[in-house]
Amino acid sequence: MIHEHERVVRMVAELQNVLFSMGANEIRSEILETPDAFHVSVRGNSRGNICRQVEKLRKLLSLARRADMEEELWSLAGSVDFDTELSLVGMMSDRAEVRCDGDAGVVEVELVRKK
C-alpha cells in the first residue's frame, strides 16, 4: 500500500480537528508503528462535559474497515476543519476505542490500523 504514513498522519489530523471543534485547546497525539500495525492515540481536554457528543464519534469510528473505500477517498481525511470525515477514519481503522471522562474533562481516542 502506498502513502501508508501519510494516511496515518491524515487520520490523526482528522481526530485533532474533531477535538478542536469540541472545544479542546490542548491535544496530545501519539503514533506507534510496529511490524504489524499502527497504534494511534489522540487525547484532548474539553470545556465542560462533552461526553454526550462522544456517542456520534464512537458510532462513526466503529465502522468496519473498508479497503475499497479507503483507496478511493483517504486523501480527504483531515482535509478541512469545518466538516468531519470520521466515518472515513473509522473505515481506515481495524479497531477504535473512545473514552470520555466528563469530570476530568478529557476525551481520548485510540485506533489500531493493521498493515
Partner: peptide, 14 residues
Amino acid sequence: LPPLGVAMMRFHQG
C-alpha cells in the same frame, strides 16, 4: 485513474 483520483480529490475537497 486510481492515483489521479486520490490526488484530485484534494482539489475540490470532496
